[in-house]
Nucleic acid binder design. Sequence first.
DNA 1: GTCTATAATAAGATAGAC
DNA 2: GTCTATCTTATTATAGAC
Lengths: 186, 186
Amino acid sequence: MSDTRDRIVKKTSELLMLQGYHGTGLNQIVAESNTPRGSLYYYFPNGKEELAAEAIRNRGEGMVEHIRAVLAQIDEPKEAINQLVQIMMANLLKRNFTTGAPVAGVAMEASNASEVLREACHDVYNLVSLPLKEKLAKVYDEEKADSLATAILAALEGALVMAYTSRSARPLEAVAEMLKDCLDKS
Amino acid sequence: MSDTRDRIVKKTSELLMLQGYHGTGLNQIVAESNTPRGSLYYYFPNGKEELAAEAIRNRGEGMVEHIRAVLAQIDEPKEAINQLVQIMMANLLKRNFTTGAPVAGVAMEASNASEVLREACHDVYNLVSLPLKEKLAKVYDEEKADSLATAILAALEGALVMAYTSRSARPLEAVAEMLKDCLDKS
DNA sequence: GTCTATAATAAGATAGAC
DNA sequence: GTCTATCTTATTATAGAC
């Protein structure tokens, strides 16, 4: 079994994050993934929408793994989450801001055109909030943990969008600072 | 002087928010703005990019006005900002989640393809954070006010993206709650 | 300022050979 | 599973009449 399919999904996932759905062409996906042209519709008979939905979910799973791994390193929830933001900033700098918000672009731009993609984005947000919620539940009651996890995710996603357009880590720094204040006291 | 140009910009601004740059066609803009086909390139000789840049800035100015007006109604910064979020939620519900994040979609999807649009989005984020910063500066020192304004903007923008995909006001509720905790203490 | 028609390009998708 | 060639459609953009 070849890794062609996997390479297509990975590259699509990456391009969607940076360029959105309509901004990413099948040609570019095929070219940059060094993948046979004919394979795309072999693996994804329903075309672009099917491929994009899988790529979005794939990114979601990747994020969950990453977040879970980072949060597992530090016991205290507030410190662990701060560490998560610090790592996001380091990655941003390391990759020179050529990394975007996980799904915000596609979410805004394709939710209107495709219910399939809207649901995929929605699912990713739900999925990604889980490890945050679990971590916070060690200190807060379930309702509070859930609400906080959602708010933190929103702040991080928004900060990544702003970081992307400003080519700067400042928005993430600001969120990190806010979260420190916030989690200290609530 | 006709209002044709203005109608084009307004409709573009609205569609960009919901569908992003690549997801919004010139055909749709002309059709839905009930605008003469031939006028588009008369007013915007440089085509879609020029039009989009102006539409983005136009939305930014509209947001600044709106935010300034809302924040002016309540003296205490923390309460005023909470009121702002409540109004955003009410608008979301009233319009049945057919309203998106101001610029997140375009920001993620077009920043890569066009430096002009990237700057437009960047400018909007800067502009919009100003009234927040000013309000917060009544209670915090300037550096703290600036950082908080940026973080709040990020949280709101992210929450709007999540609200858009989930067709729910919950993300905004969560942010409202977080901000209340946060601004209480910091 | 606005119209219609059309050019030029690129997109997503399909067919059939191998 | 992969290749090439092609179809269809939509897009941005332009030309020239009025």
